[in-house]
């Protein structure tokens, strides 16, 4: 269909975008890649009065080496992220998850920052950002601030971003000596996760020294599976030990029933997928 009428401005700078968004208040909306926003506009499920387009801001695109971390520009597309050599070297989990987003056309338009800011519980990248302890760099009316992933995802489709805020980049600590895996469960290649599990594992002498696990779509926000991480730390790198640890995947999770799946089914999936994700990440 055709969206309801709206005003549009193409930001010439981040400051420009912040000013326009602050002026629009709750009626303003950032347009990044548009892959979630435009369908909502076309179905007239959303009708913001002002769209502020970040598409012209080259400084928000690209992946940069920041010493002990990568800095991924918020407007970097999924396709760029999944092909980026720095991402492959230091954060392959992101590349793997980005490759599962939507379809080819969506990956060429949809952005890394857009997915995080949209905060769809079924989106894959929020869980990955949480597992990797990513930090969001936000520019707002009161200046620049950093928001860790653990504070960024607040509620169902809700983040710590306020009306005048723009997510400009994401700082992802490099993981050296870790191996990772994203286990996405969905029936159709182009559909969202029913449940997803992001896992990072550091092995040492046949046991698991450290692990980070986050779950997609096991609550209104991505969930860090601290119980699983605790159980894995120091555990032998065996199938049985991983299965035992994965059984704690539901701690802290509060899965919803929606049109895709029941909470009961998600409860069945989470430990199974966690086991598979950790085994794949840890080479068990």
């Amino acid at each position: 269909m055709i969206p309801a009428a709206f005003d549009y401005t193409k930001a010439a700078s981040v400051e420009d975008a912040v000013t326009a968004l602050a002026a629009a208040g709750d009626d303003g909306k950032v347009l990044a890649g548009g892959q979630s926003l435009l369908p909502m506009l076309r179905l007239r499920l959303a009708a913001p009065a002002m769209l502020v387009d970040l598409g012209g801001l080259a400084e928000l695109r690209g992946v940069h080496d920041d010493g002990d971390a990568l800095r991924i520009g918020a407007m970097t597309t999924h396709d760029e992220v999944m092909r980026d050599p720095l991402v492959h070297e230091h954060a392959p989990l992101i590349a793997q998850a980005a490759e599962t987003v939507g379809d080819r056309q969506i990956r060429h338009l949809g952005t890394f920052g857009g997915s995080l800011a949209h905060a769809d519980p079924a989106g894959d990248l929020p869980g990955v950002a949480l597992a990797l302890d990513a930090v969001m760099s936000v520019v707002g009316p009161s200046g620049v601030r950093d928001v860790p992933a653990s504070d960024f995802f607040v509620d169902y489709f809700t983040t710590a971003l306020g009306p005048g805020d723009v997510l400009v980049s994401v700082r992802v600590p490099k993981l050296t000596g870790w191996s990772t895996h994203y286990e996405k469960f969905h029936q159709l290649a182009q559909s969202w996760s029913v449940v997803g599990v992001a896992a990072a594992v550091r092995r040492s002498n046949g046991s698991i020294a450290e692990a980070r696990v986050a779950l997609t779509n096991m609550g209104v926000t991505p969930v860090r599976a601290r119980g699983v991480e605790e159980a894995l730390t120091g555990a032998p790198a065996t199938a049985d030990a991983v299965a035992d640890a994965a059984a704690r995947a539901l701690e802290g999770a509060s899965p919803l029933t929606d049109g895709t799946a029941s909470a009961e089914y998600r409860t069945q999936l989470a430990p199974v997928l966690t086991r598979r994700a950790v085994m794949a990440a840890g080479g068990v």
Binding site: Q187, A189, S191
Partner: peptide
């Protein structure tokens, strides 16, 4: 057999009104 179903809720609203809910397989599936 595996993917498609048009569903109504108890009020008679079609709940599979877009290709997000009415899941048509692609060649990848």
């Amino acid at each position: 057999a595996l993917f498609e179903e048009a569903r109504y809720d108890e009020d008679g609203n079609l709940t599979t009104g877009t290709f997000v809910e009415y899941t048509i397989p692609s060649s990848a599936d």
